[in-house]
Every structure is written in C-alpha cells, then in structure tokens.
Computed example of a mutant assay.
Amino acid sequence: MERKSYGHMQCPIARSLERVGEWWSILILRDAFYGLTRFDQFEASLGIAPNMLTRRLKALVEAGMLERRLYQERPPRREYVLTERGRDFRPVLLSLLAWGNRQFAPEGRSVEIVDPATGRGIDPVLVDRETGIPLSESGIRVVAGPAADEAMRRHMSRRPNL
C-alpha cells in the first residue's frame, strides 16, 4: 500500500507531516538534538534497520531538516547535522516531550526539561512571539492566511478553531 503524499496540500500541518510525520523521522531528529551525527550512532540508539535508517536520513536531508557533511576523507564518511530548518523543530520536540510526560507516563517522567543553571524543571508552553501571551484552548482562532486558495478559505470558514 502506497503512502499518501500531503506535500501538495496548502495546510501547514499536512506539509509538516510530509517532512517529519513518519515516526522514525521524529526520533532521528530527537537524537540529532541530543548530539548524534553519525549513521552508526543513530542505528545503535534507535535499533533501526540500516535500510530504513538510510531512507529516513535521505528524506530528512531532502526536506532540509538535516545536512549531510563529509567528516573523513579516506574512506569518505559523512555525518548528519541539523540545518536551521531542523533546529527550528526544537520547540515541537520539547512540546512532544512535555505532552508525553503529562499524558503517557503513569510511572512518572523518565526525561525532563530543566534549567541548566538551577536544575529547576521547565514546563514549556506555546506563546505568541510578539506579545508573549500563552496560547490556550480558548481565545484563538485559526483562519485562512493571505496565500490561501479558495478551497482553503472555504475549508477554514467551516473550521475556525483548532
């Protein structure tokens, strides 16, 4: 069964899923944030089959999330480093981590986000960049943007809240 592509859709969530929606991709990005850069490091950390890892790394490079760089001339060896686009995914990972701790960790948190200076735990929230106001379940609307086509405008007019 062939996977459906969402890359052509105007929805930014669908377009994002096209790049990172396969679960190995998010785990590879997590490990890249933890400092892993080499194929064998990802393979050992994830327990992923080499052919699957090769495909996922290639897709992340093509999506502009990772860059493949030569780190050894003889024999030629490459590493995978986060691009600016990849680094911009960090808040998404931190949000997933915090959400997972709240919703799916009945035994308690196995990984925490902390302030390195104080060791105090951090609970991330999504805020408006300009005002700093936290986004909550109420008080915000999702509307069609200036680049939306007519189909997206109709779709969003029927579903104004996220």
Rank of each mutant, 00 (worst) to 15 (best):
I113G: 04
E22H: 15
I133F: 04
A49L: 14
V20D: 06
R3F: 08
K4R: 11
T131Y: 03
L46F: 07
G64I: 02
L93I: 11
E130T: 14
L94D: 14
K58R: 13
P134K: 03
A44K: 15
P75I: 03
R87A: 08
G86H: 02
L135A: 12
D149E: 09
M65F: 13
R15D: 01
A148Y: 10
G121N: 01
A63K: 03
E43M: 13
V92Y: 11
G47E: 09
G121A: 07
I28R: 04
E130M: 09
A49Q: 13
E84G: 14
V127L: 06
E79C: 08
G64H: 10
E150Q: 13
L29I: 11
P106Q: 00
M52W: 10
G64T: 05
E107L: 12
F89H: 07
V142E: 10
E43Y: 01
I113Q: 10
Y34E: 15
E2K: 13
E130L: 07
Q10L: 06
L93E: 13
V61W: 00
E22P: 02
R109K: 12
W24K: 03
T131A: 05
T54K: 14
D88I: 04
A151I: 01
P116Q: 01
R56T: 09
S45P: 11
G100R: 04
E22V: 10
L60A: 05
Y34W: 12
L135Q: 02
E2T: 11
V92F: 10
G145F: 08
R38H: 08
I113K: 02
L29M: 15
D115N: 15
V127P: 07
W24D: 06
E107R: 11
R109V: 01
L36N: 06
G47Y: 05
E130Q: 15
G35F: 07
S157E: 15
H8R: 07
R141T: 03
R90I: 05
G21S: 03
L53A: 08
L82R: 00
F39T: 00
L162D: 09
S157F: 02
P75A: 02
N161K: 11
S25F: 05
L46I: 04
V143H: 00
L162V: 04
G100I: 03
V111T: 12
I122A: 11
P134M: 04
S45M: 10
F89E: 06
R55W: 08
P124R: 06
D88R: 15
V81H: 10
R85K: 15
G86I: 00
V61I: 10
A151V: 09
G121C: 00
G7E: 03
